[in-house]
Nucleic acid binder design. Structure first.
Length: 274
DNA sequence: CGCGGTGTGAAATTGAAGTT
DNA sequence: AACTTCAATTTCACACCGCG
């Protein structure tokens, strides 16, 4: 499971064809070093990749990972219309005051997915238009649009997945955690809330969020602690108590484990009194 | 007091097999 | 496919201790 907030993109270029002009080359076969999203917006054609052949229809979105070999063929009478964006991506993490950059070899997305709604289409179109117009700050704006596009793609995936109720249940549990941040919550309690067996819900939670329940609950507690340290003039001991920790030292250790520095150090680094 | 190492019972997680 | 049950294993949350 990828932490989407840590993904960093670099757009190489965008491409589109949304008119009825003829294709110069009816078929292209290629392997490119960029990742690419390719959205079919009209016309007919065929894409072959990873040993599968897809008869193209409006609304199909392809994700080609870098170095993926694929061929795109357009129909002559009803030429293909599409939007595409080429990009590279890296996983950028900030931990213990250090930046870490790891190049990713790909997102966990299916090669092809269909879109019923037009939202993703609109975002994609805006991205491509912005890129081609090259107005001031277009690179920055395009990067934001690409992130919105990806967000839309993930949401689409969410709705498509048969087990939508699992996500709803996880969201319910997260809300409950936020509402009861000053308490100790048990797995028993949460699983009763969502009417699933404890062990099954434990599994489900990790599948949906990428974190175990305790990991997640502590993460939001530490996030809250950061805010409290910076905004309120409170002692570590008080903050620990507010977040349901009986032992302030344990809280400190946990903070350090998650953030890399102790709460006291976090305070001295980020808050400066007069 | 603060920090860090370690011990411990309890709870969470995970694997595997079974049920609807 | 979605979910349960049970047991094995791991992790958690705190406690206790010694050091400076």
């Amino acid at each position: 499971m990828v932490d989407k907030s840590k993904l960093y993109f670099h757009i190489h270029y965008c491409n589109h064809k949304e008119t009825n002009e003829d294709w110069k080359d009816k078929k292209i076969t290629r392997r490119i070093k960029h990742h690419e999203f390719f959205l079919v917006t009209g016309g007919k054609g065929c894409i072959v990749t990873e040993g599968k052949e897809y008869n193209l229809e409006k609304g199909m979105l392809f994700y080609f990972k870098k170095n993926n070999l694929h061929s795109i063929e357009s129909d002559i009478k009803d030429p293909l219309n599409f939007l595409s964006v080429h990009f590279s991506l890296a996983y950028v993490d900030f931990h213990e005051d250090q930046w870490k950059i790891v190049e990713k070899d790909g997102l966990k997305l299916p090669v092809m997915q269909r879109f019923r709604n037009y939202k993703v289409y609109h975002i994609f179109k805006k991205l491509v238009m912005m890129w081609s117009m090259k107005m001031p700050d277009y690179e920055f704006r395009c990067k934001i649009m690409l992130q919105r596009l990806l967000f839309g793609i993930y949401n689409n995936l969410k709705q498509q997945s048969t087990n939508y109720s699992a996500i709803v249940k996880v969201e319910k549990a997260i809300k409950y955690m936020n509402d009861n941040i000053g308490r100790t919550i048990t797995l028993q309690e949460l699983s009763e809330l969502v009417s699933l067996s404890p062990s099954y819900f434990s599994r489900t939670f990790r599948e949906v969020t990428g974190y175990s329940i305790i990991e997640f609950f502590n993460k939001i507690k530490i996030d809250r602690a950061e805010a409290l340290i910076m905004v309120e003039d409170k002692k570590i001991k008080e903050i620990a108590a507010m977040l349901g920790f009986k032992d302030e030292f344990y809280f400190s250790r946990l903070f350090k484990r998650i953030k890399g520095i102790s709460p006291k150090e976090f305070y001295s680094r980020n808050v400066h009194g007069y």
